[in-house]
Nucleic acid binder design. Structure first.
Length: 555
RNA sequence: GCGCCUGUAGCUCAGUUGGAUAGAGCAACGGACUUCUAAUCCGUAGGCCGCAGGUUCGAAUCCUGCCAGGCGUACCA
């Protein structure tokens, strides 16, 4: 619709130039926007204002000549000049009707686009260390990453979702030690459990499992080997648990990528050699340093410590190089906000390896504050016990949890109230939107039962011109903007834009529902309204799908 | 000290690559179920858009400087 308006304005400007009303044939970029107030029309352009300096005319005068040159088609009811030179377009009702046919025809594809041009994009998210179960923060990251992936793919990108497993290094060794020590305690040894070991109850469970499987003699074996065994066993077990929790949360990855594999294949070593030969890595105080400062970082960073061990930064460099080698034009990492200091150095390594900074983007997720009934929900990190993602999904349900995580911009901290997320009323936005889908399903079932329509998925909306109530036109307008909403969400990488859209569509529908009956004695009007609500149903479903939330037939 | 994020109604937050008169939910108050699901709707009230400058036809939005809060500033992960 916006494109149509733009074309009309440009045609009018060209015509005005040709008959001498405008001195210049140069037309600058204009905005076509949807004004807040109805009195300002359906669309508005600032063309006259941005042309003032080129035409050397007052905006009002330019607007006048444009308006007089506009070819009035059947879509436009009237055109007005207002304020400092806005040209306002008022569309006739029938301009909005075709959107219904488009929705019914495109169905699950309605709202999709090809702005991504099939560009290969990777979204890496969660990537929690396999040293413990996923917690609330991971949940927000999972919801955002998964949803961003869905949205990008709907917008025409070729998306791959990946989870990076930190299965090498100190944390895994610590994990092994933690399990080993618990195991020793279970066999009666008096041991002071160190502070820097993992204390969660799941460690004891794992120790128990090993004891059961391997028998008591296990503790008599070589300690180093035993700890390694514990580490491997625990990491695999925990990772499987993480995968299960993610599946329960409706998140599916295309690939799990192992950090250890970067060492095994020599990719890390290769990266270090490459940058050393480019003089970007140097030795100082017995350690190897990467010159990230040359690329905008505050200081240079260590890749190999003076004890010979690599830092996580080393494998992260190799990992990101490897990503681009796999053909991704763009790489998006979803991180917790506490890692933001890490962005510059990764970006530096990417630029150093010859990629553009624009090919790398980090989505920083701000903290989640867990509440219960408005009160902060204390979790004792001291004891290593915390509220897991699974706890939350079990308590409030997957849909409510995902919707809550995506309800706000990830740039802001999020208050997640468990009681509120459980409530089945207007306080809880997920039901507000899902209820629309269920209500419409009810209407369609009734229509089918009463033989008004034979098949719920009838193809063509008929008699659409009968849709002329204010609430109906309002709904049609919202339906017609779904595509641009998805585009905006894809461009800004912000899923909550979809959330906000769904809330306003749901609100418009509930208002309509309460004022008008869909199934009436007038057969043709009923058919028209049925196709309208079927359109709403499909758009609600498409939007919810992007957020990973189900669209129930009944509630 | 430096870096990132945030500051909009009593609370939680939206606010379209700068647009005209600032938006929603909750909470408060008053209404609407013999109906296709009241998990809903309608109405009322509520604002120095943190503060101060700047950029221009025009600023909640962009720039600068302050103020407040969160997070980060390791040869940790």
């Amino acid at each position: 619709m916006k494109h149509t308006i733009r074309r009309i304005v440009l045609n009018a400007a060209q015509k005005a130039f040709e008959n001498g009303e405008l001195p210049s044939g140069r037309f600058p970029e204009m905005e076509i926007e949807e004004p807040r107030h109805k009195s300002q029309g359906d669309f508005s352009t600032n063309f006259a204002m941005v042309s003032a300096s080129i035409q050397k005319m007052a905006p009002g005068k330019i607007a006048e000549s444009i308006v007089s040159s506009i070819e009035k088609g059947s879509l436009i009811e009237k055109v007005e000049i207002a304020g400092p030179g806005f040209i306002n377009f008022f569309l006739s009702n029938k301009a909005w009707h075709p959107v219904i046919d488009r929705i019914l025809e495109q169905d699950k594809a309605y709202g999709s686009s090809d702005i991504g041009q099939n560009e290969k994009v990777q979204v890496e998210f969660v990537s929690a260390n396999p040293t413990g179960p996923l917690h609330v923060g991971h949940g927000r990251g999972a919801a955002v990453g998964d949803s961003v992936g869905n949205i990008l793919s709907f917008a025409g990108f070729d998306v791959q979702k990946e989870y990076y497993i930190n299965d090498s290094g100190r944390q895994i060794r610590t994990l092994g030690t933690s399990v080993w020590l618990r195991l020793l305690q279970m066999t009666g040894k008096e041991i002071k459990f160190p502070d820097d070991c993992y204390k969660g109850g799941y460690i004891k469970d794992l120790a128990c499992e090993i004891l059961e499987k391997e028998g008591k003699d296990f503790v008599l074996g070589d300690e180093k080997e035993a700890i390694e065994f514990c580490a491997k066993f625990a990491a695999e077990k925990i990772l499987q648990g993480i995968k299960d929790d993610l599946a329960g949360f409706g998140v599916k990855f295309n690939q799990f990528f192992s950090e250890q594999s970067l060492y095994d294949s020599g990719r890390v070593q290769k990266a270090i050699e490459e940058f050393t030969s480019k003089d970007l890595i140097y030795r100082k105080d017995g350690a190897l340093w990467f010159k990230t400062k040359d690329f905008g970082d505050e200081k240079n960073r260590v890749v190999v410590r003076n004890n010979g061990r690599t830092t996580y930064f080393a494998s992260d460099i190799a990992y990101h190089m490897e990503k681009y080698e796999r053909g991704f034009q763009k790489v998006i990492d979803v991180w917790g906000a506490d890692h933001h200091g890490y962005i510059k150095r990764i970006d530096a390594s990417i630029v150093a390896s010859g990629r553009k900074s624009e090919q790398f983007e980090v989505i920083l997720i701000q903290l989640v504050n867990l509440l219960r009934g408005g009160k902060p929900f204390q979790m004792s990190t001291r004891a290593g016990e915390f509220v897991t993602l699974k706890d939350i999904v079990d308590e409030v349900g997957r849909d409510a949890a995902r919707f809550m995580f995506l309800s706000r911009s990830y740039d802001s901290g999020l208050d997640f109230d468990l009681e509120l997320a459980k409530q089945k009323n207007s306080q809880n936005p997920v039901y507000y939107v899902q209820y629309v889908h269920a209500r419409i399903t009810g209407i369609l079932l009734k229509a089918k039962k009463e033989n008004i329509i034979r098949d719920i998925d009838f193809n063509k909306g008929k008699h659409l011109h009968l849709l002329d109530a204010g609430e109906e036109i309002h709904l049609l307008k919202i339906l017609s903007t779904f595509g641009q909403t998805v585009e905006k969400s894809a461009k800004t990488l912000h899923p909550h834009v979809i959330f906000t859209y769904l809330m306003s569509l749901a609100s418009a529908f509930h208002g309509y529902y309460n004022k008008h009956k869909v199934i009436t004695d007038e057969k043709e009007l009923t058919r028209a309204r049925l196709s309208l609500v079927l359109g709403v149903k499909k758009v609600i479903r498409n939007g919810l799908t992007l957020l990973g939330v189900t669209a129930p037939e009944r509630m």
